[in-house]
Design a protein around this nucleic acid. Structure first.
Lengths: 207, 207
DNA sequence: GTCTATAATCAGATAGAC
DNA sequence: GTCTATCTGATTATAGAC
């Protein structure tokens, strides 16, 4: 009886967790495709294949849905960062993160949230998992940036915070979508182009 | 009688045009501040000081309001471009346009529209003034880009279209707002920073 | 927890008098 | 053209049965 109960509960919990992951995957894709405001809760429920009321048992509001998606990508970012070699040149790790960010965006898996929505901001700031992840990622990137500035590979004339923002901004760079829409370049080519404009700038390199 | 009527009509028309300009100014500011979805028509009407129904006599839909605002900034862009010296180095004119774009954004006068909204896209594409302005600006910028690539001041390894998109993208660069929110830099410093990352890139310059 | 059905609200758009 | 009052539809969220 005892062990049976334990197993039953565990199984149920696994089911629940799997469903929540399915929800988050769907939200992630919809947020990347249409953005927060255009994504409706009905759509999410229909896409997952459950009733809307059931969705609200898992996540108390639309904002929490979006926050969960952000936590998910933040975890993916942390996982990716964890795979990077600790003894590599800091600028190489930075470049790898920028490239990874663009890859996620081009894959249609980067949620795009309005930066002005106050309810959404509140949900994000109030989400411990998200804030912890954001702070940890920022810490790691910040350390790499300062190290790269110290070793002379990244410009020391730009404040580290501006460089950090510039890295993050690749997650919502419209140049990526525009080039993709143009259909003239592969995702790899697009990433190479934006990597170049980002790190080398638009100016011609001196000979 | 005749001349009186003529004057009256002309006066009325001036009033109407002035009101439309007031509407567009308001829409412009609201679009810059909160974006298209968060801006409500009630808000616009209240801010202008007229009834919502009156607003709809001037513009048949919310999308047309946004389109009118875009036409307005496009005209401002054309006016600015017209002031640039035709005999200057192409790259200098490009830099001036990028700087002007960031200045408008930092002044809170750059409307931010969702690139995914299809109804909005339809309204923009269907607006002759907007499309004509966009095409003309793109023509001028495109010519400068190719000339700058030819004279060796702008990288010829990046397709001109990618450079054009990168220029346009400064109109919605979140790095600007983030740095502004930080409160550590003046608008001039922010523009200088982003100009540097945009044209020189993040890499340190070779000595 | 999941469902159907429904509430509650909000926002874009319009009717009709003046 | 401008107004007040209203319609209409969409959307977030919840009640209550199972």
């Amino acid at each position: 009886m005892k062990s049976s109960n334990v197993l039953k509960v565990s199984f149920k919990e696994q089911m629940l967790q799997a469903r929540e992951e399915a929800i988050i995957r769907t939200v992630n894709l919809l947020l990347a495709e249409k953005g927060f405001e255009a994504m409706t809760v009905d759509e999410v429920a229909a896409s997952v294949g459950i009733a809307k009321a059931s969705l609200y048992k898992h996540f108390p509001s639309k904002e929490d849905l979006a926050a969960a998606a952000m936590v998910s990508v933040m975890r993916r970012a942390q996982d990716f960062i964890a795979t990077l070699p600790g003894d590599a040149a800091p600028v190489d790790n930075l470049r790898a993160v920028v490239r990874w960010t663009m890859w996620v965006k081009l894959a249609g898996e980067m949620p795009s949230l309005p930066s002005q929505n106050s309810k959404l901001r509140a949900a994000l700031v109030g989400n411990r998992d998200y804030m912890d992840g954001l702070l940890e990622v920022s810490d790691v990137l910040g350390a790499w940036i300062e190290a790269a500035q110290a070793d002379g590979s990244i410009s020391a004339q730009i404040p580290a915070i501006a460089i950090l923002y510039t890295v993050y901004a690749r997650a919502c760079d419209p140049v990526l979508e525009f080039l993709k829409m143009g259909g003239q370049h592969s995702n790899e080519q697009i990433m190479d182009l934006v990597m170049r404009t980002c790190f080398d700038g638009l100016n011609a390199r001196p000979l």
